[in-house]
Amino acid sequence: MPFLPELLRVATRMCGARDRAEDLVQETFLQAWRSFARFQTGTNCRAWLYKILMFSHSKQRRSQARQPSLTELDQAGEKALLFDPPTPDVLTTEMVNAAFGRVPEPFRTTVVIVDVEEFTYREAADILDVPIGTVMSRLSRGRKLLRHELASCAEALNLDTRERQGSS
């Protein structure tokens, strides 16, 4: 089963709980098995499995009626658009992980697909089944939100970035 650990990692990040992530990955491979005849030889198998994973995830969320509220997304988006803080000088894995955990969906998944899993914008649009402009907008907001959260973390840890902001 190709890409199993990788898909489980991404699914765990999306679902939040290991058991739900395992169900999602199982559903993904089952769907891939059933629709293997539709897989186009010569295309990217990894991207195809990600597309099925995303589709299964949105189906699962719809059935559980757990869509995030529009207000939450709007507020998050607005916050990110107002000001883009510089990235703090001191960064640690724990800090980045904690900050990223506070970035809301769907920005978080889009950032994972592009910045972590290194798919191109066009591949991400295909995987997420949205226009490429939506991918770019979600990425822009997601990355800015991450910088906001990192700046907050740095402030909480007393790693003040105001001096650099002022001088730049």
């Binding site: 894995t93 800090m95 990223f100």
Partner: peptide, 9 residues
């Protein structure tokens, strides 16, 4: 930031 995010995830 990306490197650390990848390392974490």
């Amino acid at each position: 930031t990306r490197r650390l995010l990848s390392a974490a995830l």
